[in-house]
Design a protein around this nucleic acid. Sequence first.
DNA 1: TTAACAATAGAACATTTGTACTAATATTAG
DNA 2: CTAATATTAGTACAAATGTTCTATTGTTAA
Lengths: 220, 220
Amino acid sequence: MIRIGIVDDKAINRTIVKQKIAALADACIVLEANNGIDFLEKMRLLEGDQLPQIILMDVDMPQMNGIDAITIGSVQYPSTVFLVLSIFDDDDKIFEAIQAGAVGYLLKEDTAVDLGEAIQEALSFNGAPMSPAIARKTLLWLKNMPGIAKQLKERETEILSEREIDILKLMVEGLDYKKIAKQLFISPFTVRAHTRKIYEKLHVHSKAQAIQLAHKYKWV
Amino acid sequence: MIRIGIVDDKAINRTIVKQKIAALADACIVLEANNGIDFLEKMRLLEGDQLPQIILMDVDMPQMNGIDAITIGSVQYPSTVFLVLSIFDDDDKIFEAIQAGAVGYLLKEDTAVDLGEAIQEALSFNGAPMSPAIARKTLLWLKNMPGIAKQLKERETEILSEREIDILKLMVEGLDYKKIAKQLFISPFTVRAHTRKIYEKLHVHSKAQAIQLAHKYKWV
DNA sequence: TTAACAATAGAACATTTGTACTAATATTAG
DNA sequence: CTAATATTAGTACAAATGTTCTATTGTTAA
């Protein structure tokens, strides 16, 4: 019997998932929580042999979101497996969830993936369930992140546009927005617009982080 | 009607795949090759509207392996989608295949994944088919990627103190004042004090400029 | 011929950073 | 011992940056 936990702030979502679980032969819900805080508190009250083996975690929740809950929970309960069940395929969210320790990421609306199958895969030794859309994103990220084993020289980044690379280069040289704008004969606002796009694409949140990636992957 | 190509050096494997394809309603085999060279030659003989939309590619083949075939093929035939069908879940192979341009990676023995579904996913706009085992590996890679930037050599700068270099290193890694402070168990104010000293010594006026010098003189 | 995207420009607001100060310890070179 | 320097910690304010928006124009892919 597989012990399952559901964390979602919307009762309707929990009900839908519970109905799907009920259809499975070998599974039962042992924990239900509204948000990250609630989840951690309810986990603390359970004995070791009653702890859920798998948690189906929503991302957007009040008080404590799913990412933070996974970050803390995956350390505190290393034998529990966390599976994100989100409505959004927001890049940053997926990335953060994986970083936090989620073993899989499913889209709620993704009908192609059967929840039961996903649970089986998550619990099986070396499986990780993913919606095809999510799989594609992770592959694209991987593809564009050289430096694992082979250092792929001056390969095309494919992520950033030409103009974005212009800006990134000047950023690396230590120029501020105004100086970059003057250099490229454009408005400082435009430089900032490009910067926002760069951050979004690289999943970073500061100039220093962008510069670090630029050096690491030799984009400059 | 989906046009499919199979590249595998073992006739028995091709037969198995062909049988699975035959069971699909809307698909037909338009190309069959023994290895990478053979594949590229046979592709050249086909008209644009007869080119396969999807290639099921084996990895280990004589003369030219699947990775190289994808590398070349994905450039020459950008609208064709390459799907690796391998017996091995060898880390390097998977990674190389993705780098080469494969949109998905399936294990032949993986019974959980239906080939037809995988083909549909591969052809659909933003789907990528993956065996759960492969998905897990890619997730692990992603998770561990940003952390590879360790092991920095010590070098005498003669200008900066040890502590200042500590701070500079973390600055280069993209951490803000608070994060650096937490990392070094000191107050953010202290970090800022060090930063001021660093700027003074290096004659710079921003984080980005300091990072630039750090890279230029290989202090990190 | 739409749809998507790149490049441009800007408003508004919160956070972080840069700079100019002070100041207590600890260590070290002369 | 004394002076210099490193490390620590803080206040205060101005400037730069990060983020969330909107919006126009041109180019390109489907």
